[in-house]
Design a protein around this nucleic acid. Structure first.
Lengths: 218, 218
DNA sequence: TAGATTGTTAATCGATTAACAATC
DNA sequence: TAGATTGTTAATCGATTAACAATC
């Protein structure tokens, strides 16, 4: 598994986002006692195009056997290794509101490449509270914490108005990737990784499709 | 604004997801006292390609003035109307855990095309509780509720294991669109709208990019 | 008028899908 | 061996980007 080919080639975002779907389905097959799987199997179960599944699977670098497929447990491990899910990165959370608290409770993040090790907020009511085992610290402590612990990931779950300044704070501490749940457009310097999780983007798509659907019914 | 052209043409998902970005930026400009805007302005502020912004804006059906641009308040209203954000749809929520509760608290959904009018759960501890003004009802009541109120949208914030059966329940009641926050692959009959909000998809992308980033630094 | 911006048509780019050879 | 499946190369499709004409 050395010499990961993925790091050289260009990997489509859409493919990356499909891997967890395969991963979950494969785990279900493992639980069901299967030991081998083909891309055709996966595609059938998930209702996807077999060629697309094969392309996605190949990008992990795994080599299969014609006529046989892949060893199930091996494919699971190749996906984990490809995505880095077996090497969890530390993350800090900014914003300990209802969404932030929910994120702090997601222990399964750890098995998917990320663990939130500290939480920060500006609200005096929240500072000092323990949420899912982590004490909320003053936001101003965030850059030092990140610097000392070399934390690579920052999660933003603050109100939109605070998002950019919090991102700047994270960058100043040396964070390398930001997972942004605030409904705000954030600018980062070149080379930083930004993943937006903006619910209003989805709401736009959902709402529009409902309208179109309504129009069809008239 | 009658005769919405969007309902005839094919609208790219990516364009739909960019409109909220413009929308927010435009509202900021309104607040700053501006009255006109060009696509070039928007593109500059957001760091996007001007041609792309123009294409996206045009798809709302608004007609601009060469050399002038668009009236700011008019463009805002065209986007709202195009997305249906000025005609909020009712939604029911299944799963009143930490994430579900957070979603119940998002009052701004209403101005973005959706309002959650009822919450359902199977946990006896939760049933009867009021969360952000809505009483949690037994999940088994969901289909009747949806049928009686002709609720078009279902939001799933249950554990993954329950997601498919909850979706089936929603469909049986006559729901037309599902917004799925559970980390599970859901199958719906043809013609139903499905919007997945799977955090593990994002985590795959984020984690992979960090790995690639690590590799570059070595 | 001059020139910036819209609106539209064409070119490019990348992802998806199809075709087919290799192989166990 | 026969045939299913992988691995790879080519074709298609759609979105993004570029070019340019229309217009206020």
């Amino acid at each position: 598994m050395q010499n990961n080919p993925s790091l050289r080639r260009e990997i489509p975002e859409a493919s990356l986002r499909r891997l967890p779907i395969y991963y979950r389905s494969l785990q279900g097959m493992v639980a069901a006692g299967a030991s081998r799987v083909s891309c055709a199997d996966l595609a059938r179960v998930l209702g996807l195009d077999p060629t697309q599944v094969r392309k996605d699977v190949e990008m992990t670098g795994i080599v299969g056997k014609p006529r046989v497929g892949y060893a199930l447990d091996e494919l699971v491990r190749w996906i984990e290794n490809f995505l880095g899910w077996n090497r969890p990165k530390d993350a800090v959370l900014a914003g300990a509101g209802s969404l932030g608290s929910a994120l702090l409770g997601y222990e399964r993040f750890r098995r998917h490449g990320m663990q939130i090790v500290a939480a920060f907020d500006t609200d005096p009511e929240k500072i000092g509270q323990r949420i899912h085992g982590r004490e909320v610290q003053p936001l101003m402590f965030l850059p030092d914490f990140v610097r000392q612990h070399k934390t690579p990931v920052g999660v933003i779950a603050t109100p939109a108005a605070a998002a950019q300044s919090v991102a700047d704070l994270m960058v100043s501490g040396g964070i390398r990737a930001i997972w942004n749940f605030a409904p705000a457009h954030i600018h980062l310097p070149d080379g930083f990784i930004l993943q937006n999780e903006d619910l209003y983007h989805s709401l736009a798509s959902l709402s529009f499709k409902l309208e179109a659907n309504n129009a069809l019914r008239r």
